[in-house]
Structure formats: structure tokens, C-alpha cells
Design a binder for these strands. Structure first.
Length: 760
DNA sequence: CTGCGCAGCCTTTTT
DNA sequence: GGCTGCGCAG
């Protein structure tokens, strides 16, 4: 791509409208730079402008800039915005991507130097666990006492710290199976090498090995990368830090952007210390603080700033805004989780009745289990919502299975893929047979597939298993043959079909099977965007995620963690109770550091709000099935009073504000329930419920809705075609009482109450 | 080899 | 309270 010159770049229009600090951060091109960007201070804008600025001033070609992010989403966003700034002509920027995708790219070039071949596969957690299960079993260790899952986490944490097996000390090693940790780690790495595979942690770690053992290669990259840009620096782990530091030895032009107050990923290896230490690590570093906030009102910022000030270890920033006034942050005490859901739903309907969209609204919870009460209530009222986060597309079993088929098609040595699908769908090849194959494969030093070919020729394996394996091998051969002439998407469909895989889900009475088939269709679509199967597989593990569905007007429901980086005019923050938030587990395991991370999470939560932030706490909450009375979160006490208001009317006779809150909520709970019944959703529900035989939930005084003792049954049955006001036509996939799982023709799979549907 | 039943677990999540 | 993963029985 040609580098465009704007002549006097100081006057370039992309600099217009930046505030002085932002401009400073964009223009300071030489030497290390730390941009401390508070929430909503235009961080991405600075990053993209800086990139544009480097390019337009001709300081570097696009291929000479390394820009790293954590997520694909962030990378996409940056690419998009730089493109917009420079007028759509940024085909280039080949080195803009996630830490992992860039590390993988480098590793593919030099794979041989760390004992891999360029076409190595990248394993996901699932593969890791299965591999480690084998390793643990082979070492004759009690699999129940020492689980593969735990070892995966342990090895991951070592890799996050930049530790290869040799560097594991005995204390660390003793965390697993009485000191066998390091040894198992080593065996695992050997197995990976044989499989020509990497896990996510390896991508970075192998880079470190590559660079330290081959200084001439590192020098090559020093010459190549003239500018380094790092997003979300507070989330980097030790390994990523070491990687950056090696690369930054070249030009010293490293610019990191981050916010220590938003570091919420300590539990997965992020080191806040990296950002706190930046000035020491990179002597002569310039520091620019972005403190002017363009998102939230004065009260929201005041509440958030006051809260975060309780943290000890921070660089210290104070957000400010010209947007004075606005609503104070509200704090409301409620009786329990259903009440919380009821009251918040009411608030949302209120908002909607003022012609504000559902899209403006988010509910942010600490743990995903807290979502349930909201989902139930929304379904009841027919409020549209989406859950953000949750199991990711490419982590779903059916997608992994499909990928395994494709991996086998591509490679006859991908043992993990082969093992995954050899008996999926069921072909009558059991654990014993697979065990036999594995033992043989290891002793002969060849792949599972090759072993299968050999052993089915002899009497080693007999009967049904042999017939099935032979047929399976024949299928694979045929598919490979055909794959030469057919487009990869068509081939994928063919394989899923001929293997009986799609049939397996069609026959399944599992409620999720319709959705799974839908996902498989979506997979084919995703594949279609790539020219070849190789290109697709290359990208799938690292840089691909599917944009789900068209934008509808829906309430967003997510965890605080997944809310980072997002903003909403109206934000609900339920569950602010001791033990829930801050999370007891976090405090138990990490003490003060844990508490401070929780507090940062609270800070992230409040600063998501543009206009209104509403905090709730319940007096009673069900924890693991049993009821417990709960105490309001200490974070509530830490909010500066001048920015906070108690939501319900105050009665003066009780002690603390909190106590008054609870008291007033109790006294008005009947009122609430009553006004609740005036809501549009409730009326819609009332109007509809009698159309069907499905029993409406019974109402018991005060508390709006209780289910009858027996589960209601629906007049509808699985397979019925129905119509829903919002989602259109669909077929019932499964029914749980009066809750129906419906596969809609347009809207996909949704859970709805039978009161809202009619026979089509 | 499959299906069922029970025991034990239980924060957050990306690549 | 609800899910998962394992063991056991058929």
C-alpha cells in the first residue's frame, strides 16, 4: 500500500476535535509512551489516530507497524476505524491483530526452529484436556484426585508466566500429583511436538524461545517493526510482556494504552504490575493521562471515581466531564432475586414507554447464574433480550465435531481430531477399541489413522469394530478423493451428511438439537468466506468469530467482565451484596488483591453507563439452593453520598441508609407488585394466557408470581407449528412445562411462554 | 456399549 | 438447585 502524504500532517483533519491530551498522545511518536486512558476517554480514537498519523507522515509503511490487541473484535474495530480515517485504503496493516494471531503468524514462519512444522495445528482447551487425560493416565496417576482440567489450568498459568518445563521449580511442580507437575508438563510438550500442535499459551511461549535462542531473527523483527502499539496493556501477562519487551528493544517506539483501574483479568494471568511498572521498564517513557470523559454524566463519574479511590495500588487518575448534572446513581434494596428482576423489568418497561429503545439497556451481573431470574422474568413479560457471552460459537460440541471431520480430511496425522470423531456418530467403536488403537499407534510411532489402517487388515481387531473402522476409513478415502474437485463448503456438507453426523442430531430428542443443526448451517456460511479449506482452518482457531444475527431491539444481559469496553445509556447493576459482589471466592483466594480487582470490576460496571446507573441489592438470596440473608456490598458504602440517591422513599426511624432502604422496600413491596401488574407486558400476558389451556402462574399476595406446585403443562407439543408476535413462525423443539423452546424460522431458537404463542 | 442414577461441584473468559 | 461427569448395571 502506498503511503499517503498530507504535507503538513499537523493540520491533517484526523487531528481535529482531539483534546490537548489526546493530541499529545497521538503526536508523541518517538520513544516509549504510556497512555493512561480512563473509561470513556477516547482511547480507541487515540490509537487509531496515532496509527493514521504514523502512516500519513510517512514515518513507516503499514507493514512496519505492529499493533496488538487482546480480542479479534478489538482488532477488527481498529482496522475498520483506521480505514475510515484514511479513506478506506488500508488493505495493509498486516501486523495488526491479537497477540495470539500475530505470534502464530511469526511462528508459522520459523516453526522449525522450535521443533514444529509450519502447518502445526492450534489446539483449544478441549483438545488440551483430552491430551492431558492421556498423559495423566499413562503416568499412572489417580485421575480423580488430579484432574486433567486442573493440570491444564496449571500449565496455562506457567505458560502465562513465560515458564518452559525446565523452569518449573519444585514448589510449582508440587502443585500437581506430589511433584510430578513439571514432568507431566514436559511429557505434554513432547506429545504436542509429535502431534505438530500448539496450545494457545505455546504461541507466545515459542516466540520467546525463538527470539532468545535466535538473536538474528529477533534482529530481523527489530528492523521490521518501527512502531509498536499495544491496546489494553493492563491485561498483559508476563509472557506477553516479555514478548513485547524483546520486540521493543529495536526501535523503542512502543506505545501502550491501558487503564490500571480496569484491570479485571488478574485471575487469568494479567499482571497489573506491567502497567504500574512501565516507566521503570522503559526509561524515559512519556506518560499521558486521558481523564476527560465523553461518555457519562458528572454523577456517574463521581460515584465511580469515589469508589475506585479506595484502591491502594493505582497510578491515579480522576475522570471529569463537561456534562454536568444528570441523574445520581441510584441504590435500591429489594427482598430477593425475583423482586430484583421484577423491579428492574418494570424500570425497563418504563424506559421503553418513553420511546427509548431496549438496545439502550444493559443488565450487568457478577456471575452468569444471576442471569436466570432476569431471563425468567423477561420471558414471562415477553421482553426481548440477548445474552452476551456464554458458550462461544466455535466452542460448541457440534462445531468442534465438524471441525474434527475437516481436520481429518486435511491431515492423516491429526490424532486428536481422528479420536474425536471416530465414534461420533456412534459406529460401535468403543473405548476398548480406541485404547487398543492408541497403544498400537504409540508403540509403532505412527498416527492413529495409519494404525487403524494396519490393524483392520489383521485379526487384531475383530467383529463389529473392525467392520465399522474399515467402513470409516473407506469413507475418509472417498472424501479425500472427492475433495479435490468439490468446493470446500460443499464438501463439508457432504461429509456431515454422509458420515451420519447431521442425521444424529436430527434423530436426537435433545432440546438443543435444532439449534445445533442451525449452527452447522452457520458454519458452512462462515466457511464460504474463505477460498479454501486450508485458509479456513488456518483462521478458525484464532481470528474467526461469527457475528450473530441481525441487530434487533433487545435488552443486553451479560457479566461485568464481558461489559468492558461497551457503553449503554441505562445500566442496571444488580446483586451488590457481600459475598456475591465482591465475590467471596475472589477475596478468599486472593485477599486484598482479589478485593481490589472486584472493586475495579465495580468501577467498570458503573462507568458503562451514559445516563443512568442503577444499583440493587437483595436482602435474601439463594446460594447453591439454600436461602441466605445477605448484607449490602461494601462497595455501596464506598460510593460518595453526593452522587448517590436512595431510590425508594425514606423512612427516618431506622439507623443506616441501607437499613432504611430495606425497610422501605418491604413496606412498598405490595405496591410494587401491584403496579407491576399494570405493566404492558403483564397485560399482554394476561390477555393471551386464556387462549391456551396452559395454566397461568398463580398469584400469591405481595409476591407477583408463584408457580403452582405442579409444573404446568402446555397445550402445545413438540413439533407443533406456532406463531409468535415478535419472532414469527416456528416449530416447537421442546417443552418444559409452559416454557417452550421454539426453533423460529427467522429468529432462530428462543425460549418463550406458551401464553405468547398461537397455533399457526 | 449404552443409559441411568447419583455424587460432588459450583466466578469471571480470550485466544 | 442444577449441571456434569463418572460408575455401574443391563
Amino acid at each position: 500500500m502506498p503511503v499517503r502524504q498530507f504535507g503538513n500532517a499537523e493540520k491533517a483533519d484526523y487531528l481535529d476535535g482531539l483534546n490537548p491530551e489526546q493530541k499529545e498522545a497521538v503526536l508523541a511518536l518517538d520513544g516509549p509512551l504510556l497512555v493512561l486512558a480512563g473509561a470513556g476517554t477516547g482511547k480507541t480514537r487515540v490509537l487509531t489516530c496515532r496509527l493514521a498519523h504514523i502512516l500519513t507522515t510517512g514515518r513507516a509503511y503499514p507493514s512496519q507497524i505492529l499493533s496488538v490487541t487482546f480480542t479479534n473484535k478489538a482488532a477488527r474495530e481498529m482496522r475498520h476505524r483506521v480505514g475510515k480515517l484514511l479513506g478506506e485504503q488500508v488493505e495493509g496493516l498486516p501486523w495488526l491483530g491479537t497477540f495470539h494471531s500475530i505470534a502464530a503468524k511469526i511462528l508459522r514462519i520459523h516453526a522449525e526452529l522450535v521443533g514444529l512444522k509450519s502447518g502445526f495445528t492450534i489446539l483449544d482447551t478441549d483438545d488440551q484436556i483430552r491430551l492431558l487425560k492421556q498423559v495423566i493416565k499413562a503416568a499412572d496417576i489417580d485421575e480423580k484426585r488430579w484432574t486433567a482440567r486442573y493440570l491444564v489450568a496449571l500449565i496455562d498459568s506457567w505458560k502465562n508466566k513465560g515458564l518452559t518445563p525446565e523452569k518449573i521449580n519444585s514448589k510449582q511442580s508440587y502443585k500437581f500429583a506430589d511433584g510430578k507437575g513439571a514432568e507431566l508438563y514436559k511429557t505434554y510438550q513432547e506429545r504436542l511436538r509429535v502431534l505438530n500442535a500448539c496450545d494457545f499459551g505455546d504461541l507466545l511461549l515459542h516466540n520467546l524461545t525463538l527470539f532468545t535462542e535466535n538473536p538474528e531473527i529477533l534482529t530481523k523483527y527489530h528492523q521490521k517493526f518501527r512502531y509498536l502499539l499495544v491496546d489494553e496493556y493492563q491485561d498483559t501477562n508476563v509472557c506477553q510482556y516479555l514478548w513485547l519487551r524483546l520486540l521493543a528493544q529495536g526501535s523503542e517506539n512502543i506505545c501502550v494504552v491501558g487503564d490500571d483501574d480496569q484491570s479485571i483479568y488478574g485471575w487469568r494471568g494479567a499482571e497489573v504490575d506491567n502497567i504500574l511498572r512501565f516507566e521503570k521498564d522503559f526509561p524515559g517513557a512519556k506518560v499521558v493521562k486521558l481523564e476527560r470523559n465523553y461518555r457519562s454524566t458528572e454523577h456517574i463519574l463521581g460515584a465511580a471515581s469515589g469508589l475506585i479511590a479506595s484502591n491502594q495500588d493505582r497510578l491515579g487518575k480522576t475522570l471529569w466531564t463537561e456534562d454536568e448534572g444528570g441523574h445520581k446513581v441510584s441504590v435500591t434494596g429489594v427482598w430477593d432475586a425475583p423482586a430484583e428482576a421484577r423491579i428492574i423489568s418494570g424500570e425497563i418497561e418504563n424506559w421503553r414507554s418513553q420511546n427509548r429503545p431496549y438496545n439502550d439497556v444493559a443488565i450487568l451481573v457478577r456471575a452468569s447464574r444471576q442471569m436466570r431470574s432476569f431471563e425468567e422474568r423477561f420471558i414471562q413479560l415477553g421482553l426481548p433480550y440477548r445474552v452476551i457471552g456464554g458458550p462461544r460459537f466455535f466452542e460448541r460440541a457440534e462445531i468442534r465435531d465438524a471441525h474434527a471431520y475437516l481436520r481429518v480430511l486435511k491431515s492423516d496425522t491429526d490424532d486428536l481430531a481422528f479420536e474425536r470423531i471416530v465414534n461420533t456418530p456412534k459406529r460401535g467403536i468403543g473405548a476398548t477399541t480406541i485404547q487398543k488403537l492408541q497403544t498400537a499407534a504409540r508403540s509403532m510411532g505412527i498416527s492413529l489413522e495409519a494404525t487403524t489402517r494396519e490393524l483392520t487388515k489383521t485379526d487384531e481387531i475383530r467383529g463389529k469394530a473392525r467392520t465399522a473402522l474399515r467402513a470409516f476409513i473407506l469413507d475418509i478415502d472417498r472424501w479425500r478423493q472427492e475433495a479435490r474437485d468439490i468446493r470446500h463448503t460443499e464438501m463439508a456438507e457432504k461429509i456431515l451428511d454422509e458420515s451420519g453426523y447431521t442425521q444424529m442430531w436430527r434423530d436426537s430428542k435433545d432440546a438443543k438439537s435444532a439449534g445445533r443443526l442451525e449452527n452447522l448451517k452457520e458454519l458452512i456460511q462462515a466457511m464460504d468466506e474463505f477460498e479454501t479449506l486450508d485458509a479456513y482452518l488456518e483462521h478458525v482457531s484464532l481470528v474467526l468469530d461469527v457475528d450473530r444475527g441481525p441487530q434487533e431491539d433487545e435488552i443486553s444481559l451479560m457479566t461485568l467482565h464481558s461489559a468492558k469496553g461497551l457503553e449503554f445509556p441505562l445500566v442496571f447493576l444488580p446483586g451488590w451484596e457481600e459475598g456475591v459482589f465482591p465475590s467471596q471466592k475472589s477475596m478468599d483466594e486472593n485477599g486484598l488483591a482479589g478485593l481490589e480487582e472486584e472493586r475495579r470490576l465495580a468501577y467498570v460496571g458503573i462507568t458503562r453507563a451514559r445516563e443512568k446507573a442503577k444499583i440493587y441489592f437483595a436482602a435474601n438470596r439463594q446460594v447453591y439452593g439454600s436461602w441466605q440473608s445477605s448484607v449490602p456490598s461494601r462497595f455501596i458504602d464506598e460510593l460518595p453520598v453526593q452522587h448517590v440517591e436512595a431510590e425508594s422513599e425514606q423512612s427516618q426511624q431506622h439507623g443506616s441508609a441501607v437499613a432504611r432502604q430495606i425497610a422501605s422496600d418491604f413496606s412498598s413491596s405490595f405496591e410494587r407488585a401491584k403496579s407491576d401488574r399494570d405493566s404492558p407486558g403483564w397485560q399482554r400476558y394476561q390477555a393471551n394466557k386464556n387462549k391456551n389451556f396452559g395454566r397461568a402462574p398463580k398469584e400469591i399476595e405481595g409476591h407477583a408470581i408463584r408457580r403452582p406446585a405442579k409444573k404446568p403443562t402446555s397445550a402445545f407439543k413438540v413439533g407443533d407449528r406456532i406463531f409468535h408476535q415478535k419472532f414469527g413462525y416456528g416449530r416447537i423443539a421442546s417443552a418444559d412445562g409452559n416454557k417452550l423452546m421454539v426453533a423460529f424460522e427467522k429468529a432462530g431458537e428462543k425460549k418463550v411462554l406458551d401464553g405468547f404463542v398461537e397455533r399457526a
